[in-house]
């Protein structure tokens, strides 16, 4: 306020000064719920997770855990579980790519071609959320069942051997992830594509760009914010997902989420579970930062 004194005519009456200060305070008061929320549900759990990952691995529920800054927990976790860790990133990456292709086509169609069906189609994209994640994943078990229609048809055309199956394969797991996270890709893509001014695309063809070139030079760059947020919203939860691998995969498709869950609940190995959670988090944050840098859309974050 002092800095603006020179430019603005200083005729503030004491009363209005008072009210502006009160207004100033209101801002902070309004911040309180958010800050409390973050402290309670992010900062404290986060620190407890950091602490857990550094516990003395010799501890147990019986004897308790001592905090001994065991950074070697991280190294051991990587040594023991690098396979599911890489597998998670691979599955999540592949699923994100498939989601991007499917989602882009769908979002493009809804934004530009759906006409008066636009709202209905958007509702249909969200509709699966009306039932629970678990139920929808379980129904994929029915779709891909060994004696089911899809497997039988594929066997009839000899794309699958007579003993072939789809369930309990990487295919089923990736299908599940793609299906479950597709809406997270479609919605941000739609928001971006819907905003594109149609006249820009027309202009590109007026300037003799064929549709292909027009798409890559105009539509794609303009939809980039949607692509970036869509891929992030898909990739991050997909990398940590464990439901799809649990229900649709076999032990040879386990992802890092399964390992963490089992370490916490079954094996009671809290330090390893904590370290693995931290590694996953660090990996994802690093990849996201790198990705956002490369995509040149820092303003998203």
């Amino acid at each position: 306020m002092a800095s603006t004194a020179g430019t603005a005519p200083v005729t503030t009456a004491p009363a209005s000064d008072d009210s502006s200060r009160r207004r100033g305070l209101t801002g902070y008061v309004l911040l309180v719920p958010g800050v409390v929320w973050l402290a309670l549900f992010f900062v404290i759990p986060f620190y407890s997770l950091v602490a857990t990952s550094l516990y003395d691995p010799g501890g147990s529920v019986f004897s308790g855990y001592e905090m001994s800054y065991q950074f070697s927990n991280y190294w051991h976790a990587i040594q023991d579980y690098w396979e599911p860790l890489l597998r998670s990133l691979w599955y999540a990456g592949l699923a994100t790519l498939i989601c991007l292709v499917l989602g882009y086509v769908l979002a493009y169609a809804i934004a530009f071609k759906a006409g008066r069906w636009k709202n209905l189609m958007l509702v249909l994209v969200i509709a699966p959320f009306f039932t629970s994640f678990l139920v929808r994943t379980l129904s994929w078990k029915l779709i891909l069942a060994d004696g089911g229609l899809i497997v039988n048809s594929l066997q009839a055309v000899h794309l699958l051997g007579p003993d072939g199956r789809l369930l309990a394969t990487p295919f089923a797991v990736i299908c599940g992830i793609v299906y479950n996270f597709l809406p997270f890709m479609v919605l941000p893509l739609f928001a971006s594509i819907d905003k594109i001014d149609h006249r820009l695309i027309e202009a590109s063809s007026d300037l003799y760009a064929n549709p292909f070139v027009g798409f890559w030079k105009v539509t794609w760059p303009l939809s980039l914010p949607g692509v970036v947020s869509g891929t992030l919203l898909t990739f991050i939860p997909a990398a940590g997902d464990y439901i799809n691998a649990q229900l649709l995969g076999s032990p040879n498709q386990r992802m890092v989420g399964n390992v963490i869950q089992n370490l916490f609940t079954q094996a009671n190995d809290y330090p390893a579970a904590g370290a693995l959670s931290m590694i996953l988090m660090i990996l994802i944050v690093a990849m996201v930062l790198f990705y956002v840098r490369r995509a040149g859309t820092e303003e998203l974050l």
């Binding site: 004897s63 076999s250 032990p251 040879n252 498709q253 390992v259 190995d269």
Partner: peptide, 18 residues
């Protein structure tokens, strides 16, 4: 014992999560 349980649960877990 506490240690056995910790070790055995861990071994088994490592097998079933692949």
């Amino acid at each position: 014992t506490d240690q056995q349980s910790q070790q055995y649960e861990g071994d088994f877990n490592d097998v079933i999560v692949g």
